[in-house]
Amino acid sequence: MPMIKIRGLNKWFGKLHVLKDIDMDVSPKEVVVVIGASGSGKSTLLRCVNFLEFAQSGQIYIDGLEANVKSKNLHQVRADVGMVFQHFNLFPHRTVMGNVAEGLTQVKKVPYKEALEQGADLLKKVGLSDKADVYPAMLSGGQKQRVAIARALAMKPKIMLFDEPTSALDPELVGEVLQVMKNLALEGMTMMVVSHEMGFAREVGDRVVYMDEGRIVEEGHPDQIYQNPSHERTKAFLGQIL
């Protein structure tokens, strides 16, 4: 059974048709990298999977269960789907530990002391044990994004979504974030990643999906997509970004 199952998804922003009849499956432990020009709908697709946006038609199943705008338990569905944003969106009024512990104490109702222990483990995992007590404003972009990953992981999600996680970073900080993501992929996390980081896609990606004008144009193994794309549009796009 696929971890994410998308069927016939259509999404409009006003008159703009941003997602057109999207069908997609993501298997457990699979790492899918979504690429495409800005405006191709790739971020919107990701946000639909986390129900930060709602499609006008189509179905989304998370781990076999359908959810949509009418679902009463959307917050529980979202807790199972971790999201990492391009601009980190850390809570500036909470320390690093406060950010990581927030979901644990508020959503999972984990006792504070236990949340701190779990938080410490997670910060260790992303290599930021020494930053537990500082506020996000004092961190570099790469550190912020690693905290954001730890914050999402705290919920023990079934799926992790990454929306251009390294696009807002200075080039020298991209590596540390990708390393954390690679480790996560190797541990068997189901991941859907909107990113143009070819190195990441080829190293740990199982599949690359190319989107253009709201449609999935082509998908396949990273080596095939990057080296031998079958569509002209994919070729043209890769020619621009590589």
């Binding site: 930060l52 199972d80 971790g82 979901g103």
Partner: peptide
């Protein structure tokens, strides 16, 4: 608005996101 989205994506309800974040 990313603050609210981050809170919701953790599984918070709208009320929790408003009150805590």
């Amino acid at each position: 608005r990313g603050q609210r989205e981050a809170a919701l994506s953790l599984g918070m309800t709208h009320v929790q996101a408003m009150r805590r974040i």
